[in-house]
């Protein structure tokens, strides 16, 4: 088809039009084009491991979290029973220590990985991605470390 500028007025004149046959609107670079900036193909199994982890930890978390909610909110008088003494009593047993530790790690990593994929899917600019992920990883590591520290160094006789 020949470039017929007279009939292309069908689109209607655009105010401040600066484009014509010799000076067309800038071409938007195709995203998948191989350029110097294109990241190298990753040949690791990280994405597969992350995907598997989400499925497996999800199944374990259903048991851990529902059990946790049941104990904390419904059995033996519900929320009203929760106090310093209740927590101290539970953490005296290694079983509950392991339960809570497992729940903390799995929930934090599961949630962090989920947010990582959300950032990957929605953040469009590389810089936004970098900052959001940096914030996410910092928050995750901080929460996991603090939680682990508390579970292991909990002192029921603290004043």
């Amino acid at each position: 088809m020949s470039a017929d500028t007279t009939s292309s007025a069908a689109i209607g004149p655009v105010e401040g039009a600066v484009y014509d046959v010799d000076n067309p609107a800038p071409y938007i670079e195709a995203p998948r084009k191989r350029t110097g900036k294109t990241p190298k193909a990753t040949r690791g199994n990280f994405e597969m491991a992350a995907w598997l982890f989400m499925r497996l930890s999800g199944v374990v978390l259903v048991v851990l979290v529902l059990g946790h909610l049941l104990i904390q909110l419904f059995l033996d008088g519900g929320v009203s029973k929760i106090g310093f003494a209740f927590v101290a009593g539970r953490w005296a047993s290694p079983f509950w220590q392991v339960w809570d530790l497992l729940m903390l790690w799995l929930a934090m990593l599961h949630g962090a990985n989920g947010l990582r994929t959300v950032i990957n899917d929605y953040a469009e600019r590389a810089n936004t991605r970098l900052w959001l992920k940096g914030l996410l990883y910092t928050a995750t590591v901080f929460t996991i470390l603090l939680g682990t520290l508390v579970i292991f160094t909990f002192d029921p006789n603290i004043r």
Binding site: S8, I11, V14, Y19, A25, P26
Partner: peptide
């Protein structure tokens, strides 16, 4: 939805 880079860098519905 029409787009003609020789007229405008924006597309319009016609």
């Amino acid at each position: 939805r029409r787009f003609n880079p020789e007229i405008s860098d924006a597309s319009v519905w016609e």
